[in-house]
Design a protein around this nucleic acid. Structure first.
Lengths: 168, 168
DNA sequence: TTTAATTTTCAAAATCTTTTGAAAGTTTCA
DNA sequence: TGAAACTTTCAAAAGATTTTGAAAATTAAA
């Protein structure tokens, strides 16, 4: 396979993966592009490579920065901004876990804690089933949250450690 | 909080969570509803509860069955079909991991294996960076795939086991 | 077989999300 | 300061996804 074709296939696949996991396809594609770029890229580079508008590039770059996956870079002698992505995939995964935990797991924890305090007749099968299932989900969510907390605390080799623990 | 309000909050939150993770909001809501229902529900029950059309209920129920999260139930003396969801949240999580692994992780593994064989001048920084990053992602993806394979193989208490290993 | 109950399908409509592009804003340099 | 280079914003357009609802298909009882 030629380089251009391989790069295209990889970027498309990464975009599709993002889509399936609720991440904007273009955001994932920009991320994919930056991950394989040997040097930081500017907005025009990304516009040309992915064939998208300046506004689109700008918005998605800011989202990536907000997710902690992309950094602004300043090149001496250049007026415009450049951007680069973390290349260590373990650190990328860690950062994604940290953000999704904060953005998605923690808010639902709050809801589960709230609705777990429902008042009502516990002999009503509707209410009893609700309370039981919520208690179970709540326990699961808290345990998952704690596990992620631990796992993302250690910066280096955390996933290796975890994997070797699972397998042994 | 009253039961109806709590149930509503929980179903909305579950739907939003699904959305954020690339799952149809209504599909997640139907799943949420079935998880707290003490007995199997029929299409009309779900239509009434969530205020959605019959076609919508039908399509999303079939998707849930396809994901292995909902079962058809037959009630004696009743002509219509009823539906129930697995209530053990650990088994639900396991099933979701199994399906996402199959649907999303494995296809990208194939792409990474393919694009890793790119031909070209390794002294070109573009090509070198591409090959290096792909190799890293590929290793990560394969390790994750193997870990999930192991973790989802054991039916009971798998997650507990994993969690206790992470913490010890 | 006929009829009634129920489920499934899918084209069109509604809704939601993403993208564009041009105007406004900001920064840098002469 | 003024002008050029560059970035940001956001309303409108395009595009994608979801939902509806009525017709077709299926199933079970009479």
């Amino acid at each position: 396979m030629k380089f251009e074709e391989a790069k295209e296939r990889y970027i498309q696949a990464w975009g599709a993966l993002g889509s399936q996991w609720g991440v904007n396809r273009t955001m994932a594609q920009i991320h994919a592009l930056l991950m394989v770029a040997p040097d930081p890229l500017c907005a025009d580079d990304i516009m040309a490579d992915l064939n998208i508008s300046r506004g689109n590039v700008n918005m998605n770059l800011r989202a990536l920065i907000d997710w902690g996956l992309v950094r602004r870079e300043f090149k001496s002698g250049e007026r415009k901004e450049f951007f680069s992505a973390e290349k260590d995939i373990w650190l990328v995964a860690r950062q994604v876990l940290i953000e999704r935990k904060k953005r998605e797991l923690e808010p639902i924890l709050k809801v589960l804690d709230d609705v777990g305090t429902v008042e009502g007749d516990r002999s009503d099968p509707q209410i009893r089933a609700f309370i039981d299932t919520i208690a179970q989900i709540r326990e699961f969510a808290h345990k998952t949250n704690n596990a992620l907390e631990q796992v993302t605390r250690s910066e280096g080799g955390w996933f290796w450690t975890m994997l070797s623990k699972i397998f042994k």
